[in-house]
Design a binder for these strands. Structure first.
Lengths: 219, 219
DNA sequence: CAATGTATGTACTAGTTAGTTAGTTATACG
DNA sequence: CGTATAACTAACTAACTAGTACATACATTG
């Protein structure tokens, strides 16, 4: 009786899977931190939303802060992996810029949790990113692609040659990040949801126009 | 002896000043909330940084959330009052856009706490702004000024006529907000401080160029 | 198949935190 | 001058919250 029988549903089949436990905690934590911030998220609540217990958070991540840093690292490496797939080398510079801005636009739209984590991390003065070895040395595929596009465009005499890739990247990010990160206050004040599906194409084109107009302007 | 004498420094002249107490609490709270977020800020710490006690926070603001909302309201009304002073009606449209972008740029740079509060409020899905009657009906002087500039520019045949004032306002805000709000993660990743004084003029001109290039482009 | 380390659950704790209770004192006003 | 009221203080509390001690079960490997 004390022995576990296959027909005892009370004692669930407690299969052990360290990787599953770890990744489940991480997934739940990412959502919770993105939703409520570092201070607002609750370790007990994160634990409750997993199939395991709070003890496991401390076992795998050391504590609340370790868990938050791991969530950040995972979010960043995930986004960077996506960016790595950007292939615009074969396109002509103008079309490459259009594709790159559209891709960035799409990335930001489809990863709101990532954007929120970045906002939260900025509220914390990027203290955790600075501390993380993984995040400090992370390459930026989108910037690399942009740098090469600008070089080609400049060589072809299509783009002005006094522009800095980081500045152009900043323009694109600013627009895409603002649209997602400031969605709620913007809507409250201007009564417009920047993520309204009906406005999507308009904004997706606009950021391409904006950047290209700037790049092709006379110096 | 029990009577308070002018030469007894132990019993400080506890002058009562409701307005001073209230505004001191509000000033400290604004800094604390901007620094640590709503959940991260501590009522006890806010109280400790004032000359009064925690009880007064509850006396004047009802609670932590009431205090946070009051801080938000004050920050927004302060910024709006500043914007009201924008006077670009007498300038020609191109110059007016240059002035307006530069002014917005300056405002954002000199009010980092306001930008941080906005970021924090977005993390909270603008729940508090939506609830505040003061903030819901706040006019937007910068947008009004922009609308009139665009009309004049369009009438003069200088600007394209398919642009929406809210969209242009969004571009300008996106750039200026991003530069301040995402300063820390941007620096950690791209090793560039967007608020470096040496880059200030460069960025201040850039946002004007960017918007004007867009407004004067062929449709 | 024993045994050893990894993985997991339960129950607890110390410290914190928002909010409150029960008053006291200054000041305006008749 | 006395008194009503607004402004203010100190000490307290109940609930929460991150983190831990301790016990135990699974599974891998020799």
């Amino acid at each position: 009786m004390a022995t576990q029988t296959p027909d005892s549903p009370a004692t669930a089949p407690v299969t052990r899977d360290a990787e599953r436990t770890r990744s489940e905690i991480l997934a739940v934590a990412t959502r919770e931190f993105a939703d409520k911030g570092f201070a607002g998220a609750r370790v007990d609540e994160i634990a409750a939303k997993t199939r395991t217990t709070k003890r496991m958070i401390y076992y795998y991540f050391g504590g609340k802060e370790g868990l938050y840093i791991s969530a950040l690292e995972q979010a960043y490496t995930g986004i960077r992996a996506l960016e790595q797939q950007v292939d615009v080398e074969h396109l002509d510079p103008t079309e490459a810029i259009r594709q790159l801005t559209a891709l960035t636009f799409d990335h930001h739209e489809s990863h709101p949790d990532f954007i929120r984590l970045v906002s939260i991390e900025n509220i914390h003065y990027a203290r955790h990113i600075a501390r993380s070895e993984i995040l400090a040395g992370l390459a930026n595929p989108a910037l690399d692609a942009l740098t090469r596009i600008l070089e080609r465009g400049r060589a072809a005499g299509r783009f002005r040659d006094d522009v800095d890739p980081i500045d152009v990247h900043m323009m694109i990010s600013a627009f895409c990040v603002f649209r997602t990160a400031n969605r709620y206050t913007f809507k409250a004040i201007f009564k417009r949801d920047m993520l309204d599906p009906g406005l999507r194409e308009h904004y997706r084109t606009m950021i391409g126009d904006l950047v290209l107009e700037y790049l092709t302007a006379a110096e």
